[in-house]
Design a binder for these strands. Structure first.
Lengths: 146, 146
DNA sequence: ATCGATGCAAAAGTTTTGCATATAC
DNA sequence: GTATATGCAAAACTTTTGCATCGAT
């Protein structure tokens, strides 16, 4: 998804809710989009503080917008073992995460067999499945060389 | 696993490391063991404060011992979407979690097909798998009745 | 002009740390 | 007796909230 497409989506969501399209919202969304890794609130704030010396974004605004962006479905969050929420753009392709415990690298993947089994499990326990998270923790090829 | 077996394990671990077997350690472990649900630090502290009016356990001791107990492998922690670590006794039977988003009920399950697929995925991305978490979020039968 | 959004600072919530004292060994 | 563990309080860290002001519409 290009930045333009993403910002257009934001514009639509904002208009639908009769809210306002602000520079800060765009900047926060842009930062998540540009980030190679899944990024957290503090990292977003830091990046914006460094790159936008004259046009500050407060940490409260970052938190408020992360909640907003997640509510609207534009971004997704994951909670890894260390208990810090990290954010990513919602590309509407469901996926799970493979996390390197050494370097923090995150690889996204999807496996249809697992998805099917999850439905089976939910049915067995009579749960109506809403969503799920799966995080595989390991050591990536690079880190495993040492 | 009975309380006695669990406390015996704690005794062994403590002896091996030349540490001390304290009343507080036992109380914290006992509280996790007795808890029907996966319990967090604050809940453990609250329970001990109520039941042990004359023999207090400080919140710092709770946190220090949770780290210790997790390190030794006697307990496991899970981080759910809300970003609060919850603890359970390690029964050495790996399992995953089905969580009701209404009432918070947690059901444990294991599925060998998923375990196998996870190994396949790790191999594909050249990760050496250390562990994993899978949380299915949904609405349980009781809550779904409304 | 209006009403939501922002920045700041204060507050709230969670976890960690320093230190004097207590306690297991 | 010695070294670890504890309780307390303070500090550190993360997230939320109140409020005056700004800015998008």
């Amino acid at each position: 998804m290009t930045k333009k497409e993403l910002f257009d989506k934001l514009k639509i969501v904002v208009k639908e809710k009769a809210l306002k399209y602000t520079k800060q919202r765009e900047l926060i969304l842009r930062t998540i989009h540009s980030s190679k890794t899944h990024i957290n609130a503090e990292q977003i704030h830091k990046k914006l503080t460094i790159s936008n010396k004259n046009n500050k974004v407060g940490i409260a605004t970052v938190y408020r917008n992360l909640l907003f962006l997640e509510e609207t479905g534009l971004v997704l969050s994951i909670s890894l073992e260390n208990n810090l929420k990290r954010y990513e753009i919602n590309r509407h392709k469901h996926h799970d995460h493979l996390v390197c415990i050494h370097c923090g690298k995150i690889v996204e993947f999807i496996n249809q067999n697992i998805e099917k089994e999850q439905e089976t499990i939910a049915k067995k326990f009579k749960f109506k499945l809403i969503n799920h998270t799966m995080h595989l923790y390991g050591v990536c090829e690079d880190c495993g060389k040492d």
